[in-house]
Design a protein around this nucleic acid. Structure first.
Lengths: 111, 111
DNA sequence: CTTCAGGTACGATGCAAGTCGTACTTGAAG
DNA sequence: CTTCAAGTACGACTTGCATCGTACCTGAAG
């Protein structure tokens, strides 16, 4: 039941290069954008993101996000929980999560 | 003399994915970190960064930074000028440049 | 003019990364 | 027990990208 938390780097050990590499991928960035937009920071299932990729690839992407220190993964055996490490990210890279809400370039509204 | 400015995306068209991809490379990030640290935003020569890579590769990296909209490249024919697009970056992605100063993870000095 | 340094263009190469197929594990439900 | 869905491990494939070698262009200085 309890579920064990798969390991990731400590807050002070977050590497900016790893973070940028993690956010460079469109699928991973969409996950992070969704997580950042939910201020309740509740735990989510990893199939709640509607990613148009196979589950093996999803496993890969969530692992990259975890190893970059951006999310926690809680292993329940036959399912998995995802939680944003908001406090750690804001402590080390303040303002980063806010950038994810900047939206697509040249939004449809020209002004 | 005047030197023509090689093209890049407009401020409103800056793409977050292209920016993260550009900053994912260590050499490009070091260039941006140096530029962001110089508040005078003066034009710099492109061999003033001491990059440990060949000049062909430097050409490639500066092109990536320019196409991501992070820098302007001014072509003088047989030399080139580099200038940070600070205002445009701050307008579209406020706080991004400040993140570059976050430094290496958990510096070896615990203090 | 020639020479030379800074920079670019094109191609080749090597490596990292995204993707998926197959097979296996885990835990819950019948 | 068996069945099933969620997830992982491993490997193969493919694409992207950083790097450099060779050749060429540009402008300034002799």
């Amino acid at each position: 039941m309890a579920g064990r938390n798969l390991g990731g780097p400590k807050a002070d050990a977050l590497d900016l290069g790893a973070v940028f590499r993690a956010l460079a991928d469109e699928h991973r960035r969409s996950v992070m954008t969704e997580l950042a937009a939910d201020r309740s920071d509740s735990e989510r299932g990893c199939n709640s993101f509607d990613l148009p990729i196979s589950k093996q690839t999803q496993t890969h992407h969530f692992r990259v996000l975890r190893e970059a220190g951006l999310i926690d993964e809680i292993d329940y055996g036959n399912r998995k929980g995802i939680r944003l490490r908001r406090a750690d990210i804001e402590k080390r890279f303040p303002g980063l999560l806010a950038l994810l809400g900047a939206g697509p370039p040249a939004d449809t509204a020209p002004r």
